[in-house]
C-alpha cells in the first residue's frame, strides 16, 4: 500500500489552517484557494466537515496523455508543470477530486506529501503513512 495523506474527517473543525500552510509551503503564497487538499463543510445539516486528500491511487498518472505525472522521492504522484499540457484529464478523472486549479497557474497541481498541513492541524485530523 502506497504512502499517502490520511484524514479523519470526524475530527475536522473546518479551520483551513492546513490549506493556508499548503499554499505557503508549495507556492510561497498565503492563499488557501491554492491548496492541494480540500475541506467541504456540510451545514446547517448534517453539521460535519468532509476532508478530501490525495490517496495516491495513481489514476492521474494513468490518464495523463503525455506522461507529465511523475513520482517523487516520497512515492507521491506529482504533476511536472514543464511537461503538463493542461488538458485537464487528470482533474476530471481524479476519483477524490483533489487535483486543483487556480486562475494564476496554467497547469493543475496535486499533493506531493510535503507534510506542512499535518504540522498545523490542531485536532489531529491529518497524518501521512
Amino acid at each position: 500500500m502506497a504512502v499517502f495523506l490520511h484524514a479523519d474527517s470526524t475530527k475536522c473543525s473546518g479551520c483551513k489552517a492546513c490549506l493556508v500552510a499548503c499554499s505557503l509551503a508549495k507556492f510561497g503564497v498565503n492563499n488557501p484557494k491554492k491548496a492541494r487538499l480540500a475541506i467541504i463543510p456540510k451545514f446547517p445539516a448534517p453539521g460535519v466537515f468532509e476532508v478530501k486528500t490525495c490517496t495516491n491511487c495513481g489514476t492521474c498518472a494513468e490518464v495523463c496523455p503525455v506522461g507529465a505525472v511523475k513520482v517523487n522521492e516520497k512515492g507521491a504522484y506529482y504533476i511536472d508543470p514543464n511537461e503538463c499540457i493542461a488538458c485537464m484529464a487528470c482533474v476530471k478523472e481524479c476519483p477524490e477530486q483533489v487535483i486543483f486549479t487556480h486562475p494564476d497557474y496554467p497547469v493543475p497541481f496535486e499533493c506531493d506529501l510535503c507534510g506542512a498541513c499535518v504540522e498545523v492541524c490542531g485536532p489531529g485530523v491529518l497524518w501521512i503513512e
Binding site: S13, G14, C15, K16, A17, V20, F43, G47
Partner: peptide
C-alpha cells in the same frame, strides 16, 4: 454536541455544533 466547529485558522475550536433531538434543530 456532534461536531467541533472552528473559525478560520483556529487550532482549538471553541465552537460546539449541536443537534437537539427534543427540538429537532441544529
Amino acid at each position: 454536541v456532534i461536531t467541533d466547529k472552528g473559525c478560520f485558522g483556529c487550532p482549538s475550536p471553541c465552537g460546539k455544533y449541536s443537534f437537539s433531538k427534543k427540538y429537532n434543530i441544529y
